[in-house]
Design a protein around this nucleic acid. Structure first.
Lengths: 141, 141
DNA sequence: GTGTTTGCAAAGTGTTTGCAATTTA
DNA sequence: TAAATTGCAAACACTTTGCAAACAC
């Protein structure tokens, strides 16, 4: 018996889920398979739901939302905040920044080594820095 | 007849609105009075509505939303995107950045001269840079 | 079997819109 | 008076939640 490419993707996803303490349910495996098959991706709950549905897989939108949050908590994804009305998730959890094309809702990675932010003042009072996010807003033309 | 401090605030607001091509209606004057009386402020539609309502002035929430957008278009305010579920407006429209205390929904200005972002790559294709936003996410402790 | 996860549909949140009544100039 | 603005309530988009049925181990 020969394993298909699809099975292999599923196996990798299953392994990855297990490693992060998540039960490899059918839905999670499918979603992980799509998210982590190729290189870095940026998705919203809807875009991912459309994609998975388009592939003929049945997963409810609510489950996509839940799964994205579980993956984020597990460190498999990172949330990117660039838009007041949409929630983006990034499969690249490392140190990096983004171009954002507002009109198209398009995110483009900027490698973390590329950008340097200098002169950030010490935060007031009892506050400590969690992360520095840079969003380079761009437009066509 | 002597003018009260409140009248003077209102007069300034009226003037500012006129200068920006906005009719000084009662509601706009009240909102502008609150927004631009003191130094830099960060508000959401709700926080501003609460504030103006608390001061005994009647303005509908819808009008607050509309007004905030009109003020933004007129260049009196600037939108700050730091949270996927709330829309912040900043009375400081100049070049500057922000600390953001997520838990408290608190924004703190960082002067534009303080921070320098180096190494931003040229954007791909036919894209041109609009603005570079830096959000320093901080927390208590 | 037992605890976890899913899907649905309902509820929630923040925001926008249509339109008649009101206000401004 | 004519055009702009307001307030309400309904509509919206996106997201979360409650709970019974289905599933993983």
């Amino acid at each position: 018996m020969v394993k298909s490419a699809r099975d292999s993707v599923a196996d990798q996803a299953t392994l990855r889920l297990r490693q992060h303490g998540l039960r490899p349910t059918r839905q999670r495996v499918e979603l992980a398979g799509i998210l982590f098959r190729d290189c870095d991706r940026h998705v919203t709950a809807e875009s991912l739901h459309d994609e998975v549905s388009g592939a003929g897989v049945k997963v409810s939108l609510a489950t996509v939302y839940n799964t994205l949050h579980q993956f984020t908590e597990a460190g498999l994804l990172r949330q990117v905040i660039v838009d007041a009305s949409r929630c983006y998730f990034d499969t690249n959890t490392g140190n990096h920044q983004h171009f954002f094309v507002e009109k198209e809702g398009l995110l483009i990675d900027i490698p973390g080594e590329a950008i340097e932010v200098a002169g950030v003042p010490a935060p007031p009072d009892g506050l400590s820095v969690d992360r520095v996010d840079v969003v380079v807003r761009v437009r066509r033309g």
